[in-house]
């Protein structure tokens, strides 16, 4: 347990600058665009200018969801950037140990603990990065709402709920589902994705050139297995042999089997096949 926590801490420590940079970029772009948009509209309203004169829409009352809709691109851009970086890092987190300075993987594999701890600690680190970015976005939204109330005078604004603001933008709505059950589905699928990527990387590290083919094949098979029950209704011209409740249970079973097999395969590759 101690070794696992040390490894997780090491992975978080290694990524800290990138993580804080992503948070900084998100803060700057979202708050910057929000301030610019709000000041422009508030100033136009104070001067009594019309829509035709300023060239952009001026609502009767401003609301926080309205502000998010009107700064949509600047909200989406840093989120997409963060997602891209985190997806890429879930591959790099392994390769940096092989190709980094003094082939760090030698030392990691020589540690006097089970090798699967290495796999689990890297997975925990990636999940910590993802959920901290989500938590940061939540806090940022609260801050942005306060910013909105500071810039827009009380007479010019209407109240709105926090969820109304977070669901008005399709990307924020996907990242922060208002049902906890949907949160489990969305991030559960994300976790399965990371586990499959980890196993694909280990396949490549174990079998090298041939491993690339194995890795691609493995990712394709896992993706097909998970997607097939969900897209089955669309594939068939009419009703399916399976009832919807059964398709749902099949999907749940596959979503349990795929990560279990991937983890077992990953642990086995780390224990028996990885060479440095």
């Amino acid at each position: 347990m101690n070794r696992y926590l040390k490894l997780v801490n090491m992975e978080i420590h290694r990524f800290r600058y990138i993580l804080f940079s992503l948070m900084g970029i998100t803060l700057l772009l979202q708050c910057g665009s929000l301030i610019w948009t709000l000041q422009r509209v508030v100033s136009a309203k104070e001067k009594g200018l019309t829509q035709a004169e300023v060239g952009f829409a001026i609502p009767k009352f401003l609301s926080f969801p309205w502000a998010i809709v009107n700064t949509k691109e600047w909200f989406i851009l840093p989120i997409l950037l963060s997602i891209t970086v985190l997806v890429l890092y879930s591959i790099i987190i392994w390769y940096r140990d092989w190709f980094g300075r003094s082939t760090f993987i030698y030392r990691l594999l020589m540690l006097p603990s089970a090798r699967w701890v290495l796999y689990v600690s890297k997975l925990t680190a990636i999940l910590t990065f993802v959920f901290s970015m989500i938590a940061f976005q939540l806090v940022l939204l609260v801050g942005e709402n306060m910013l909105f109330k500071t810039i827009v005078p009380a007479g010019m604004r209407t109240d709105s709920t926090f969820v109304e603001a977070s669901t008005i933008n399709p990307v924020l709505n996907t990242l922060l589902p208002k049902q906890f059950e949907q949160f489990i589905y969305s991030y559960g699928l994300g976790i399965i994705g990371v586990i499959v990527i980890f196993t694909a990387v280990l396949l490549e590290r174990s079998y090298r050139r041939l491993g690339i083919l194995y890795a691609i094949g493995y990712v394709v098979v896992c993706a097909a297995a998970i997607l097939l029950p969900a897209i089955l209704p669309a594939l068939e011209s009419s009703s399916s042999y399976w009832y919807p409740g059964e398709i749902y249970r099949i999907e749940l079973a596959i979503c349990l089997i795929v990560p279990v097999i991937s983890c077992c395969l990953g642990f086995w590759l780390l224990r028996k096949k990885i060479t440095v």
Binding site: L138, F162, V163, T167, L176, K178, Q179, F180, F183
Partner: peptide, 8 residues
């Protein structure tokens, strides 16, 4: 968020 904030 899921205890208080996510109520629509």
């Amino acid at each position: 968020y899921y205890l208080y904030g996510a109520v629509d």
